[in-house]
Deep mutational scan, measured.
Amino acid sequence: KRPMNAFMVWAKDERRKILQAFPDMHNSNISKILGSRWKAMTNLEKQPYYEEQARLSKQHLEKYPDYK
């Protein structure tokens, strides 16, 4: 399994927040909201998630050095 990218790292927690506020919302609508919010964020706001992506990628490479 591939490591999560920056968007997926961010969306994991954001999806939970949306589901808590709107428990009956369909997944497709949640995904649209998440995509819009991510696009509206600045690079500075996204930076911590890119850093986490890099950490996860490094960890994955160490754990699975032959992964293609």
Rank of each mutant, 00 (worst) to 15 (best):
21 A>G: 06
45 E>F: 09
27 N>F: 10
25 M>G: 02
21 A>L: 12
15 R>Y: 07
39 K>Y: 00
68 K>A: 15
27 N>R: 11
26 H>A: 14
56 L>T: 05
20 Q>D: 12
55 R>M: 08
60 H>L: 07
4 M>S: 13
49 Y>G: 03
19 L>S: 09
7 F>Y: 10
44 L>T: 12
52 E>T: 06
61 L>K: 12
26 H>K: 14
65 P>F: 02
36 S>I: 07
59 Q>P: 11
25 M>A: 06
44 L>S: 10
48 P>C: 02
68 K>E: 11
36 S>V: 12
8 M>N: 15
35 G>Y: 15
7 F>S: 00
44 L>G: 11
2 R>W: 02
53 Q>A: 15
65 P>E: 14
50 Y>V: 09
12 K>I: 12
24 D>N: 07
64 Y>G: 13
51 E>C: 04
61 L>Y: 08
57 S>F: 08
52 E>L: 06
35 G>W: 10
19 L>H: 09
23 P>I: 01
48 P>N: 05
61 L>Q: 12
25 M>D: 05
53 Q>E: 15
37 R>W: 07
56 L>V: 08
32 K>R: 08
64 Y>N: 14
55 R>A: 07
66 D>F: 04
46 K>H: 01
28 S>V: 08
53 Q>F: 10
22 F>E: 14
59 Q>F: 08
4 M>C: 04
6 A>I: 02
66 D>R: 09
61 L>S: 11
39 K>N: 11
50 Y>C: 05
35 G>M: 15
58 K>C: 07
60 H>A: 11
18 I>G: 00
58 K>P: 06
44 L>F: 09
64 Y>S: 14
37 R>P: 01
65 P>Y: 03
59 Q>C: 08
22 F>C: 13
46 K>Y: 01
25 M>T: 06
24 D>V: 03
49 Y>P: 04
8 M>E: 15
6 A>H: 00
1 K>G: 14
10 W>C: 00
24 D>I: 04
36 S>W: 06
17 K>W: 01
39 K>L: 04
31 S>P: 04
7 F>T: 01
12 K>Q: 13
36 S>Y: 08
56 L>H: 07
46 K>V: 02
31 S>A: 13
52 E>K: 08
50 Y>G: 03
31 S>T: 14
25 M>I: 05
38 W>P: 01
59 Q>D: 07
18 I>V: 07
61 L>I: 10
51 E>T: 03
50 Y>P: 00
31 S>I: 06
58 K>F: 07
15 R>W: 12
14 E>H: 10
15 R>C: 09
24 D>G: 09
30 I>T: 00
16 R>F: 06
31 S>M: 10
52 E>H: 04
22 F>M: 08
18 I>A: 00
19 L>D: 03
43 N>A: 13
23 P>E: 00
3 P>C: 04
26 H>L: 12
28 S>D: 15
30 I>H: 00
51 E>L: 06
